[in-house]
Write a protein that binds this DNA or RNA. Structure first.
Lengths: 192, 192
DNA sequence: AAAATAACTAAGCAAACACTTAGAAATAAT
DNA sequence: ATTATTTCTAAGTGTTTGCTTAGTTATTTT
């Protein structure tokens, strides 16, 4: 069978994700990837094919991390609207406290690739579909529980939440925690 | 005095802005600039110094264009909250109809440069300060006119509007006009 | 232990990058 | 008409890019 791999696929993929997250796709050179992933360029290219494919894989990795991290309160919510605030606050904290100061990888990618690269956009659409589903499932449960007016248009409110989420993911880069908490509070108050 | 310039500074600057807007900063190569500005690379560099400085100048140009364009209803508002909707709708139309399909140059730049390049960030902060001022002046007038509750926290609501604006400028890339109009409507309803 | 196989490293590739040099072409002042 | 000055273009500069080649090293199968 030959020599065994010296690296762990998941581990180096996470390191690649952090590199892309920090520098952006175009600014992340093969030398940077080599440095931050800790394996040789040839090893990277024989494992992941090319830079674009490696990036696509990191996008999926990032989405998984969101699901088991900040998005968890939304996904597992039983219809408490405050779970949305928990998600927003969790996201702000993760950006402001950790060393991962570059917002949301998927939002950054939406803005950077918005009018090009088909494969990346396809992957983004999948992500937004799933995020919409999480929000609308939460809102439906809230409505059943009577925490949301019976006549509330769930689809419309979901669109609103997606928009507010993306807004947060932009302003997190330029505003302090107090202002962000104000923003979140106003969004939460509007959900009634 | 020597030969007269064959190009108009404003004209080529606008062309440079469109190039950066379309491709993003890093993807806009000196050859693309040469093509789209219609003047030789040497001419570009002797007029604008370097790529970064040219970009900074296009940012100012873009801001001026916003002020005399979609932002005008907000800037010249006498306190009618619907002027905000006019701004939002105008922005969506400008992105969806024209050939300028790449969202907002300043929002794209915020996301792309969010944690690097001091000069660009400084310029962005100026922009966000001015945008905040436009919103809060409108809201203050609305409050005086009784269209907004007396106890409304203007600063907080301004932060909210900035966030919603940035959200719109992200989702404009992935949603259709109907969904965007739904989003705008929900934001407008929340201003009461 | 020899053969086969797979993963490793370092060096190298053409193409593309931001930016410059060299000098021709045009215009204004003398 | 000559000179001084400026803008113009085309062809280059060294560096960096994404990705490959060549060949060594480690591990399993025989």
């Amino acid at each position: 069978m030959g020599r065994t791999k010296q690296y762990n696929r998941e581990e180096v993929l996470e390191k690649a994700m952090n590199a892309f997250w920090k520098h952006g796709f175009k600014n992340t050179t093969s030398r940077i990837l080599e440095d931050e992933m800790g394996i040789n360029q040839n090893t990277i290219y024989s494992e992941f094919g090319n830079k674009e494919n490696l990036f696509l894989e990191t996008m999926s990795f990032y989405e998984d991390q969101l699901k088991t991290g900040v998005l968890k309160p939304v996904i597992e919510s039983d219809g408490n609207l405050e779970d949305i605030r928990t998600f927003f606050n969790g996201f702000v904290d993760s950006v402001k406290s950790a060393h991962k100061k570059n917002g949301c990888l998927l939002t950054n990618t939406t803005v950077a690739f918005g009018n090009s690269n088909d494969k990346v956009i396809q992957r983004l659409n999948l992500f937004y579909d799933r995020l919409s589903k999480y929000f609308s499932q939460l809102l439906e449960k809230a409505q059943l529980k009577g925490k949301l007016d019976e006549e509330t248009d769930i689809k419309k409110l979901t669109t609103y939440l997606i928009g507010c989420t993306q807004g947060l993911k932009v302003i997190v880069k330029i505003m302090d925690k107090k202002a962000l908490s104000d923003y979140i509070d106003t969004v939460m108050r509007s959900l009634k």
